[in-house]
Computed example of a mutant assay.
Amino acid sequence: MTKPIIKTTTAEDIPALQEVLDKTGLFPSDMLPDMLAPALAGETESFWLTCFVDGRAIGLCYTIPEEFAPGTWNMLALAVHPDLQGRRVGTALVSAVEQHLIAQQQRILIVDTSGTEAFARTRQFYAQAGYEEEARIRDFWAEGDDKVTFRKAL
């Protein structure tokens, strides 16, 4: 695998990213064009990054500013094609997000995930990336499925 290349997401990336979403089940891929539209039109501070390996879009990250919390951002989506998970592609995407925000002198990046056993690897990923579990809201997503918020100072 060649070194991942991370760029701002473009409309041309949508079909390949929809495949990533279909393979990961992060959210329905038909939502992607509408979700991306404000960023593609330059109408928002939110930003999307696409990760390419060997010229193929294989991952995405979506990050938004938190309202009423200057300098605080929320990473709402991180997805890597299952064939390339565990190869530090997610780490490269998160690092690119962090560097982008640091360059803008932002303060904090948060990410929410599930507290279920199915998301244990996800929580471990964020812990290994230097994020600390900051909060847990019991039964947030569903009965028995806590919302776990991780935080990293930039």
Rank of each mutant, 00 (worst) to 15 (best):
T2C: 03
T2L: 09
T8S: 11
T10M: 10
I14K: 11
A16L: 14
E19D: 13
V20A: 04
L21G: 04
D22W: 01
T24W: 05
G25Y: 06
P28E: 06
P28Y: 03
S29G: 01
M31W: 06
D34W: 01
L36K: 06
A37N: 12
P38A: 07
P38S: 09
A39W: 04
G42W: 09
W48S: 03
W48M: 07
L49C: 03
C51R: 01
C51V: 04
F52S: 05
F52M: 07
V53G: 01
D54R: 11
A57V: 09
L60Q: 10
Y62W: 15
Y62I: 09
T63S: 00
E66F: 03
T72Y: 11
N74I: 08
N74D: 14
H81R: 03
H81E: 08
P82A: 06
L84N: 13
L84E: 11
R87V: 00
R88P: 01
G90S: 03
G90E: 03
T91L: 11
T91K: 15
L93Y: 02
L93P: 02
L93Q: 01
L93D: 00
L93W: 02
V94T: 14
V94P: 03
A96H: 04
A96I: 00
L101K: 09
A103P: 07
Q104G: 13
Q106S: 12
G115A: 04
A118E: 14
A120G: 07
R121G: 08
T122C: 13
R123N: 09
Q124L: 15
F125H: 10
R136I: 12
R138N: 10
D139C: 04
D139E: 08
F140G: 02
A142W: 06
E143A: 14
D146M: 01
V148R: 02
A153T: 11
